[in-house]
Design a protein around this nucleic acid. Structure first.
Length: 604
RNA sequence: GCGCUCGUAGCUCAGUUGGAUAGAGCGUUAGUUUCCUAAACUAAAGGUCACAGGUUCGAAUCCUGUCGGGCGUACCA
């Protein structure tokens, strides 16, 4: 089902074609001010410049050709040449019934589904996830959910850091401290010892190992040998590696589940997965003359990148000691995704600091011609599209990157625990009579939802200041406000039952929609715009377009709720009001749960 | 040094790609409850869109420069 704004755009385009012979895309936006109507077209202003015509006269010509009386009232020309459009209540009412019949409430499917690989989250094994992983994980998940909603074939890839020197270091440390024997024993009795219980220890081990690595040359040397051993498949070292990897993955899965992020073990393709492909990556690039040696390292020099000294900036794919880098792994991953996963598009969700790396990476693979699957190298298949989606940092109240008092990264688990704890105390205060299990459910939904919603509601590209107080506030654009609006609607259903009103039956029987009260009409117009909001959110991968739509919806619902009794309405209009409630609840639920992965609750 | 990015109300942030008198929330002030969850609603006050030029019918948005913050810039990811 097409959003109103798209139908209007098409009509405007046609009218311009007829009036001027110009074939231009329509410029239609939501009106900047309610007094100008619902939508406005600014085409006349833009065209007048090109055609050296008077914009108001041009607007006149356009609206005489404009066939839109099935949707809008008579178009008005205002100001310098704006065409203002006001939706007809009949059109809104009819659309309300249409979205009621649509399980996706007007969110459109794409005409050409693509295979899209989304690379996100990417934590490191042997370490707990921290705030630094929050944004990639949840923004990446939201992007996947939106693409899936649009009908694309989405392949999630969790590029975890499970290889490299830091692991050799840790693995050797286990032997050095004779911890491995302990592990072996425990690992045999898995039931009594879950690998994830090991993670907090692993982190301390990691810290100590790092200290030794930096200060003890012998330890450092041994660590490097362990990397080589792992590389060559040494059974003992491999065992240590596997144990830590399993433990970490279990920990990650727990967090993803809590966060409502859809990432399973099947989506994991860590650095280790690509390890065996790395020599070929380097050799193939050498063969075609793109990779050359420089200061002992194997590098590529994509055009347009400079060092501090103004020299060509290298993209290093093999260090002078022979080791590979993340650049090498990323190259191997692109090949795998293009050739094996058949990606039409690859999306990377990382923080903005990695911008340069991805610009260089993309330049290199384009030059190497790796974006066309090998089986199509004679031509035919088109280049896979590469996209780097960036985001800003999470800052503390002091405006600096969020850290604990001791200067460490804040653990994601602890952050979520705190949010849930705070939500719990609010529930205790507001609704002490609820069962404890329900309080827990509410606290989890609200606490975790608040953290996610706060992130989503900020512009993805800018930094934001993390504040429990703000994200858990009941006023404003927050998860609790959205969840509260939802819970109130659900409460109407329950109250109706108590009063002996069969709301389900009345809803099924609704044939006519009454939008006579301003609050009803405003809410209805917002409801039919869900598809429009979805389209703009997915176009730029900006979740904040969705949250601001949902917030406006909830605000309009609250105004309606205050102004218009539902259960006590006259029998004639009650079904119509129930429909407004029902559609609001479904839209909030669809947006929150399907697209943002935030739980709604029946009661709070 | 060079590159990227940001600077919008006291605070936290939007601003749909160049449109009309720049919008929300918090906070402040003033109201609303015999009524479906007041975790709500209604309204008011609050702005040199960092600064200075330029482009044009029109600029928070585009171009140039200045000031200020953040990030990146050859073997970490």
């Amino acid at each position: 089902m097409k959003p109103a704004i798209e139908i209007i755009s098409e009509r405007i385009s046609d009218a311009i074609q007829k009036a001027t012979g110009q074939n231009v895309p329509a410029i239609v936006t939501a009106a900047t001010d309610a007094k100008f109507g619902d939508y406005q077209s600014n085409n006349a202003l833009a065209l007048a410049k090109q055609l050296k015509a008077n914009p108001r006269q041009l607007a006149e010509k356009i609206i005489t050709e404009l066939k839109i009386d099935d949707i809008c009232q008579k178009p008005e020309i205002a100001g310098a040449g704006f065409i203002n459009l006001r939706l007809k209540p009949e059109f809104v009412a009819e659309n309300l019934l249409k979205i009621n019949a649509d399980k996706d409430l007007g969110a459109e499917k794409t005409e050409k589904p693509q295979t899209v690989v989304v690379d996100f989250s990417g934590p490191n094994i042997a370490k707990q996830m921290h705030v630094g992983h929050l944004r990639s994980t949840i923004i990446g998940d939201c992007i996947c959910r939106m693409l899936e909603q649009a009908g694309h074939n989405v392949i999630r890839q969790n590029h975890i850091g499970d290889w490299g020197t830091q692991f050799g270091m840790l693995s050797y440390y286990l032997d050095y401290k004779e911890i491995d024997a302990f592990l072996h024993e425990r690992y045999q009795k898995r039931k009594a010892f879950r690998p994830k219980d090991f993670i907090p220890d692993a982190e301390n081990f990691y810290r100590e190992a790092k200290k030794l690595f930096d200060n003890d040359p012998e330890f450092a040397e041994k660590s490097r040998q362990y990397v080589v051993k792992l590389h060559s498949g040494d059974k003992h070292v491999k065992f240590n590696w596997q144990f830590i990897t399993d433990a970490s993955n279990e920990e990650f899965r727990n967090l993803y589940e809590r966060l409502g992020v859809r990432l399973s073990s099947g989506d994991t393709r860590g650095e280790s997965f690509y390890n065996k492909m790395l020599p070929d990556v380097v050799n193939d690039l050498k063969k075609v003359g793109l990779a050359v040696e420089s200061d002992g390292a194997i590098c590529l020099f994509p055009e347009g990148f400079k060092t501090k000294e103004g020299e060509p900036l290298p993209f290093i794919i093999q260090k002078s000691d022979g080791a590979f880098l993340y650049a090498t792994t990323d190259l191997a991953a692109i090949r795998y995704r293009v050739n094996e996963l058949k990606a039409d598009e690859i999306i990377y969700v990382t923080d903005a600091r990695q911008k340069l790396h991805f610009e260089m990476l993309f330049a290199v693979v384009k030059k190497a011609g790796w974006l066309v699957p090998r089986s199509f190298s004679e031509g035919g298949a088109k280049n896979a599209k590469l996209v780097h989606i960036t985001f800003g940092s999470v800052l503390g109240e002091d405006g600096k990157p969020l850290k604990t008092r001791s200067g460490e990264n804040v653990k994601l688990k602890e952050l979520l625990d705190e949010a849930v704890k705070r939500a719990k105390s609010v529930v205790e205060e507001k609704n002490p009579e609820l069962k404890n299990s329900e309080k827990e459910t509410i606290a989890n939904a609200v606490g975790i939802g608040a953290v996610k919603y706060a992130d989503y509601s900020n512009n993805r590209t800018s930094d934001y200041i993390f504040s429990f107080d703000k994200m858990l506030a009941m006023d404003g654009n927050t998860a609790p406000y959205m969840q509260y609006a939802y819970a109130r609607i659900k409460s109407i259903g329950r109250k109706g039952e108590e009063k002996g009103i069969d709301t389900v039956k009345e809803l099924k029987g609704v044939k006519e929609v009454y939008l006579n009260e301003p609050a009803e009409f405003e809410l209805a117009k917002q409801l039919i715009r869900y598809g429009e909001a979805f389209n703009s959110a997915i176009a730029d991968f900006k979740p904040n377009f969705l949250t601001s739509y949902l917030y406006e919806l909830a605000a309009k619902f609250s105004a309606f709720y205050n102004a218009c009794p539902v259960l006590d309405a006259e029998p004639k209009i009650r079904p119509s009001r129930l429909l407004l409630c029902e559609l609001t609840a479904r839209t909030i639920q669809h947006g929150l749960e399907n697209l943002l992965g935030i739980k709604t609750i029946e009661r709070m």
